[in-house]
Computed example of a mutant assay.
Amino acid sequence: MIMDKLNICPNHKTKNESFYPSPFHPQQLPTFSIKTNTNEWYDESLETGGTLIDFVCAYLAFQKEASTKADATRWIYNMVRIPEHLPLALQGNEKRHQREDAPLVFKKAGLIEHLGLIRYLEKQGIPLAVAQQHLKQVYILHKKTRKHLFVLGFDNEEGGYELRNPFFKGCLRPKALSFIRGSVPGTATVHVFKSCWDFLSARTRNIAPFKSDSLVLNAYECLGQVYPYLQHYGYRTLYSWMDHDAAGRQATAYLSHSIHSIEGLHHKTMSPVFAPHRDVHTWHLARLGNAEA
């Protein structure tokens, strides 16, 4: 399946083995083989082989990209897109999102300079210095209304954006989670937030330190994308910041269940920090004395 995704076709096949042009050579020499019964590979020119994870690590390194086992797991997930089972209440309405987002056309993105967006950030309790690190000023066209809009954009791992301004809320597809790498390589902690506002509120208050990695779901329907970002990465503690409501409790339970197989990773829910408020952002605004936006 991975070779199909790379658009590499076999030169020939036997009962137990398929032979391909090598993905590790610009000339694509026919030295690469895969055993069909074990899915193990071997490249004669490199005199090395191994499992699927080993192959992806080697392929990413050959492409001069990050090539840890965690990077390989994420790459496989993004290539194959194996769906994860989510509780029905946490699943998004894909058709609804496609219909809403189809009219939006991306034009350009850059630093936040629009005065209206800066004032919007102030109302949300987010300093411009924090916002500039994680948000972009995005210029879009709404094809149905023929209006051009300046919005705040929070990019995700699939090239899409969550979009916000005082009068507009939407996204440029594809819908996906966002991964923010911490300042310390190999950090042992990862924080999981529902929304960019929750994440930015936590960063503003420094309750999710910049040295830690963070995952922002952008929607509960993206919960199924979390696991590849945790497996093989060496995290010891996952801090989840889900909402104080039924959906948030389901999401917290889902995270606990999904990481059960990751040895040494412990889950700590952080909802007591912002209780009795619904979410981190609402709590942050209350602490500032702002009305909920």
Rank of each mutant, 00 (worst) to 15 (best):
residue 64 K to Y: 15
residue 253 A to W: 10
residue 39 N to G: 06
residue 234 G to C: 13
residue 63 Q to G: 09
residue 84 E to K: 07
residue 99 R to D: 06
residue 98 Q to A: 09
residue 255 L to A: 02
residue 289 G to P: 09
residue 26 P to A: 14
residue 23 P to A: 05
residue 65 E to M: 13
residue 213 D to K: 06
residue 212 S to H: 15
residue 164 R to S: 03
residue 87 P to C: 12
residue 45 S to L: 14
residue 30 P to M: 09
residue 254 Y to E: 02
residue 73 T to Y: 05
residue 36 T to G: 04
residue 280 V to H: 01
residue 269 T to K: 05
residue 5 K to L: 13
residue 285 L to H: 02
residue 160 G to E: 05
residue 8 I to T: 03
residue 100 E to G: 00
residue 171 C to F: 14
residue 60 L to R: 11
residue 183 S to A: 12
residue 199 F to P: 04
residue 174 P to Q: 12
residue 94 E to R: 14
residue 117 L to I: 05
residue 81 R to F: 13
residue 257 H to N: 15
residue 244 H to L: 15
residue 159 G to A: 11
residue 266 H to V: 07
residue 66 A to S: 13
residue 39 N to W: 13
residue 13 K to A: 10
residue 135 L to N: 01
residue 54 D to V: 05
residue 110 G to W: 04
residue 292 E to K: 08
residue 249 R to L: 14
residue 38 T to F: 05
residue 258 S to Y: 06
residue 126 I to A: 00
residue 22 S to W: 04
residue 219 A to H: 08
residue 262 I to A: 05
residue 267 H to C: 04
residue 221 E to Q: 13
residue 199 F to C: 06
residue 80 V to H: 09
residue 253 A to S: 15
residue 220 Y to E: 03
residue 160 G to M: 05
residue 281 H to Q: 10
residue 172 L to Q: 00
residue 38 T to W: 08
residue 113 E to T: 10
residue 215 L to A: 05
residue 87 P to V: 11
residue 192 V to S: 02
residue 265 L to N: 00
residue 42 Y to R: 02
residue 289 G to I: 04
residue 154 F to Q: 01
residue 55 F to W: 03
residue 38 T to K: 02
residue 109 A to T: 08
residue 51 T to S: 15
residue 171 C to G: 13
residue 162 E to L: 09
residue 109 A to H: 14
residue 172 L to D: 02
residue 89 A to C: 12
residue 99 R to H: 11
residue 182 G to D: 03
residue 77 Y to Q: 11
residue 188 A to C: 13
residue 109 A to C: 06
residue 205 R to L: 06
residue 166 P to H: 10
residue 210 F to K: 15
residue 106 F to A: 03
residue 269 T to I: 06
residue 173 R to D: 05
residue 24 F to R: 07
residue 268 K to H: 12
residue 49 G to D: 04
residue 110 G to A: 08
residue 32 F to Q: 03
residue 243 D to G: 07
residue 85 H to E: 12
residue 133 Q to M: 02
residue 273 V to D: 06
residue 169 K to A: 06
residue 257 H to P: 00
residue 163 L to S: 01
residue 177 L to I: 06
residue 222 C to V: 03
residue 111 L to T: 12
residue 96 R to H: 11
residue 199 F to V: 08
residue 150 F to D: 01
residue 138 V to G: 02
residue 5 K to Q: 13
residue 85 H to S: 10
residue 254 Y to Q: 01
residue 6 L to I: 09
residue 229 Y to T: 05
residue 267 H to F: 02
residue 99 R to W: 08
residue 43 D to L: 02
residue 269 T to Y: 07
residue 74 R to G: 01
residue 159 G to D: 04
residue 83 P to A: 04
residue 37 N to A: 14
residue 272 P to S: 13
residue 136 K to T: 04
residue 287 R to A: 06
residue 271 S to C: 14
residue 148 H to P: 00
residue 168 F to H: 09
residue 203 R to F: 00
residue 67 S to C: 14
residue 216 V to R: 00
residue 20 Y to G: 01
residue 266 H to L: 15
residue 264 G to E: 07
residue 91 Q to T: 11
residue 293 A to K: 09
residue 115 L to R: 15
residue 141 L to D: 05
residue 252 T to S: 09
residue 2 I to R: 02
residue 142 H to E: 14
residue 269 T to H: 10
residue 279 D to L: 01
residue 56 V to T: 04
residue 151 V to H: 02
residue 97 H to A: 15
residue 61 A to Y: 12
residue 133 Q to F: 00
residue 156 N to R: 03
residue 212 S to I: 00
residue 69 K to H: 13
residue 83 P to Q: 10
residue 138 V to N: 07
residue 269 T to V: 13
residue 240 S to R: 01
